[in-house]
């Protein structure tokens, strides 16, 4: 039975969504004007579109370089996070009755509540001592720091998978590793999607870790570049906003195409 559409609510929600979209609309309007047009009107469509702001900003901030840094960090972080964190979680989930693994579970999960600032200063020292103040070091830290939350999510999911499937595989002579890669890992796909999406959002948008770990401007990530160029943008808001938009665009494009998938993935992670 189809119920009547609540038009009043629909209108209210559309009005609300304007609040969400307004800052982005404004950002686009600033990015495609020149200072003169901006002074005349902030929100109106420009009579002439200044797309050269984008090419100028690209050149100035070395956009493609920062883009590829962010992309490399995100891709590698996600791949390794999925492969390693799920494995650790599997071992823990299947041995929760043992003291050691129970300890591990709480050890990792409770670390979620250690505030980052306390680690901030020593980790800078440590990464420097190891020569890891670079992209590799950053990827590595994301993978390790992801353990806390991901183990929490994975363990919950793995424990809901019936053991019979594994037992059958074991009867066929599969090793523990074999069981994990051939039986369990494929079953984890829904939750892998969740972990993957959350990891992408984190690694792509993070500002604090790159800020303190990376000192070489050539390996700066997209958000870091926006910060680093604050001084040089000066009051050239058009250029600055063109640059901001370009930094936001890649993930927005991904979102446009995978929107349903992203939302359901994020939801599962939180309510599983």
């Amino acid at each position: 039975m189809k119920k009547k559409t609540n038009w009043l609510l629909t209108l209210l929600l559309i009005a609300g969504s304007v609040l969400v979209l307004f800052p982005l609309y404004m950002a686009v309007m600033i990015a495609v004007k020149d200072p003169q047009q901006l002074a005349e009107s902030l929100l109106a469509l420009p009579d002439k579109w200044h797309f050269e702001n984008f090419t100028n900003a690209m050149e100035m901030t070395n956009f493609w370089n920062a883009f590829s840094n962010s992309a490399v960090i995100t891709v590698f972080t996600v791949i390794f996070t999925l492969l390693t964190n799920s494995l650790v979680a599997y071992a823990i989930a299947r041995n929760m009755h043992k003291k050691f693994y129970k300890f591990l579970y709480y050890y990792f999960v409770s670390a979620m509540f250690i505030p980052f600032p306390i680690i901030m200063l020593p980790i800078v020292k440590e990464m420097t001592a190891l020569g890891l103040t670079n992209l590799y070091g950053l990827i590595f830290l994301y993978i390790v720091y992801g353990l806390s939350f991901n183990i929490f999510v994975y363990v919950g999911y793995i424990r809901s998978i019936p053991k019979e499937l594994e037992e059958a595989a074991i009867m066929d002579g599969a090793s523990t590793w074999g069981v994990f890669w051939k039986v369990i890992f494929p079953l984890l796909m829904p939750i892998n999607a969740t972990v993957g999406i959350l990891t992408v959002l984190w690694a792509w948008n993070d500002f604090m870790l790159p800020l303190i770990i990376l000192s070489d401007q050539d390996i700066a990530t997209l958000p870091l570049v926006q910060y680093v160029f604050q001084g040089q943008f000066s009051t050239d808001y058009n250029l600055a906003f063109a640059s901001y938009l370009m930094a936001l665009t890649p993930i927005v494009i991904v979102y446009l195409f995978a929107q349903k998938w992203v939302i359901s993935g994020v939801t599962k992670g939180a309510i599983k």
Binding site: L9, T10, S17, P23, M26, Y237, Y244, A247
Partner: peptide
Amino acid sequence: NIRFKNTLRAVYFLPNILSGLIVAFIFNY
């Protein structure tokens, strides 16, 4: 029971995927 449910949901979720730093720059303006 509203119309455009999926579109509206997608719009409301949009801010979550954006970089906090850049969002702050935009609001700064």
